[in-house]
Simulated scan of single mutants.
Amino acid sequence: MTDNWYINPAAPDGDEPGVQLESRRLWRQFHRLGTEMVITKTGRQIFPQMRFRLTGLDPKAKYVLLLDIVAADNCRYKFSSSRWVVAGKADPEMPKRMYIHPDSPASGDHWTRRVVSFHKLKLTNNIADRHGYTVLNSMHKYQPRFHLVRANSIAQLPYSTFRTYTFNETQFIAVTAYQNDKITRLKIDHNPFAKGFRDVGSGKGEKSDTDEPAPSSDEPTPSSDEPDEDEDALDVVGDAESSRLLPSAPAVESAPEVEGRSTLSFRPYEDNPSRNTACISGEGAGPRRP
């Protein structure tokens, strides 16, 4: 199974966590076109959903699972001539919130017996939000990050080791209305709750905020216990990182990137430094090609 999972090479406490992104083929379909996620004042769920499979956890130890979404670079984008291009320097970001999975803390046995879903996380552009949603800027690119922490309680997080996993195919650009009609079509074709799309032909369709109701629990459906048919290759594009969370963490520096693995150091609960990328107007925002 080591060919199918990323195993943390420096795992403390004797466990060897492996994390796999669910619905990888679907994520890659969106990524090739330039994934878009709608943000609204009232909050909008993510589709495809952020869902993971875990392995190698200590069955009796307790773990806290978290997700945050940070700026992927320091650029602002626009959709022009059927493609995303850089339009200038990014706007200032609001402090990013960590979304703690509601089952946390739970045993390793609990986490490895089911698909872990973050379907309740919502995106908003409301800077005055009081619901704990993730506040994003429209026309900016973002990177979700999954965090695994061995801890008996939430109160221990400031003194615990975070293992951070990133998947390049989950990057997206936040929008207030879909720009690419191909993304709109993919959403309609694959999201069972996408019944409220309007103006589909124009590629600017929107959905009502009730089009993506959250499942009642994280228990997988009978078919979800089986991995996706394409989940037989290494899923984790980013490396698993270990970092110590301090009550007052110093500024984080960006490390050089190695193709296929992220080497960005990270301390949760502080503002994420977007990658030190020059914003050149008109530069394409799609996936890098060799």
Score class of each variant (00 low, 15 high):
Asp3Ser: 14
Tyr6His: 04
Pro9Asn: 08
Ala10Ser: 13
Ala10Asp: 13
Glu16Pro: 08
Leu26His: 09
Arg32Cys: 10
Gly34Gln: 03
Lys41Arg: 13
Pro59His: 10
Val70Phe: 03
Tyr77Gly: 01
Ser80Asp: 11
Ser82Pro: 05
Glu93Asp: 14
His101Gly: 00
Pro105Val: 02
Pro105Glu: 00
Ala106Leu: 06
Phe118His: 09
Thr124Met: 01
Thr124His: 00
Asp129Gly: 10
Leu136Met: 07
Asn137Ala: 00
Ser138Asp: 02
Pro144Arg: 05
Asn152Gln: 05
Ile154Val: 07
Ala155Thr: 10
Thr161Ala: 06
Tyr165Lys: 04
Ile173Glu: 01
Val175Trp: 00
Asn180Trp: 03
Thr184Ile: 05
Arg185Lys: 10
Lys187Ala: 05
Lys187Tyr: 09
Pro192Ser: 09
Phe197Gly: 03
Arg198Asn: 11
Asp199Ala: 15
Gly201Gln: 15
Ser202Lys: 11
Gly205Ala: 04
Asp211Cys: 05
Asp211Pro: 03
Ser224Lys: 04
Asp225Ile: 10
Asp230Glu: 12
Glu231Thr: 04
Glu241Ile: 14
Pro247Ser: 12
Ser254Thr: 12
Ala255Gly: 03
Thr263Asn: 09
Ser265Ala: 14
Arg275Met: 02
Thr277Lys: 15
Gly282Lys: 03
Gly282Phe: 08
Ala285Val: 03
